[in-house]
Amino acid sequence: MRILVTGAAGSIGRVVTLGLCDRGHEVVGLDLVPEPDGFTGAWHTIDCADADAVDEVFGEERLDAVVHLAGHPDEADLPASLTSHVITTAALLDACVAHRVGRFVYASSNHAVGRTPRASLTDGVVPGLLTDQALPRPDTFYGVGKVAAEALMRLYVDRHSIDAIACRIGSFLDEPGTTRALSTWLSPDDCVRMVDAALTAPSPGFAVLYGISDNTRAWWDLEPGRRLGYEPQDDAEAYADRVAVRDVDDAEAAHVGGPFAGAEFYRPALDLRR
């Protein structure tokens, strides 16, 4: 497949770009910054919130799919979060429709459901695990942006019959460094497996999967990903003896979004000055 990867210069983007190339795909990179050293494919330095610039890229490149990884990876005010996560998604989806690109894979986040209390999972569909049937429950404006982007994807699937997969990524790290991450870790290798599965699953329509490795202490159900062919191979438990116990561990485990659900992230939607 010939795949446009947005945010290709970022931490996840670099791993996914190399991993997809290793799996025989051809990657076209897109980012706000020039291509990193060693990248040899086509590259576009643009803002994917710029719909005209995005459409030009699609007009220049013959694409089979989009992997949308671009976006501010932390909290911002509401307008900035909506631009970063929703407007960029809209520009890319419009281009997909205009240029007949039928597969869209999105780096959503666990923070789309991050305010879900972990205590509420004990009587769930899969006891102890949050499933893809969970209602949106964002923990931040960042999470609100991810919820809205997922809703936009659902709309375009229904209107235009494209295939769109939202990957609710947990903690993408070389190795887990906190007790929470022992449950939420996504290894670099499993991240590539996840994206490749989302790209190649037959006719998924709209789907949600949880982007974590096969962690012994997992909080989220891996079955939605397995239905799409995602078979994670790594387990954070291999690093458990390196992870120190901290006073904040219990607080970070109270909600599935961890510290993003805490009071330190409470702020006005339209003013981040305080």
Rank of each mutant, 00 (worst) to 15 (best):
M1F: 01
L4V: 05
I12Y: 01
I12P: 03
G13I: 04
V16D: 01
G19E: 00
L20Q: 03
L20R: 01
R23L: 15
E26C: 06
G29H: 02
D31Y: 00
E35N: 08
E35I: 03
G38Q: 09
G38V: 11
G41M: 06
G41P: 07
A42V: 14
H44L: 09
H44D: 05
T45V: 13
D47Y: 03
G59I: 13
A65E: 12
V66R: 08
D74T: 09
L78A: 08
S84D: 06
H85E: 07
T88P: 02
A91T: 12
A95W: 09
A98E: 15
V101P: 10
R103H: 08
R103G: 03
S109T: 06
H111L: 07
A112W: 05
V113W: 03
V113F: 14
V113H: 04
R115L: 13
P117S: 09
L121C: 12
L121K: 11
T122R: 14
L130S: 12
D132Y: 08
V147R: 07
A148T: 09
A148H: 12
E150Q: 13
A151E: 13
A151T: 14
L152T: 13
A166Y: 02
P176H: 09
S183V: 03
W185R: 03
L186Q: 02
L186T: 02
D189L: 08
D189S: 14
D190R: 04
D196L: 02
A197K: 03
A198P: 01
P202D: 12
L209V: 08
L209C: 12
Y210C: 08
G211C: 09
D214K: 11
W220L: 15
G229T: 08
E231L: 11
P232Y: 01
D235Q: 12
A236G: 15
Y239P: 07
A240D: 06
V248M: 11
V248K: 13
D249C: 14
D250T: 12
A253I: 08
A254V: 06
V256L: 14
G262N: 05
A263S: 13
F265M: 05
F265V: 00
P268C: 05
L270Y: 13
L272M: 04
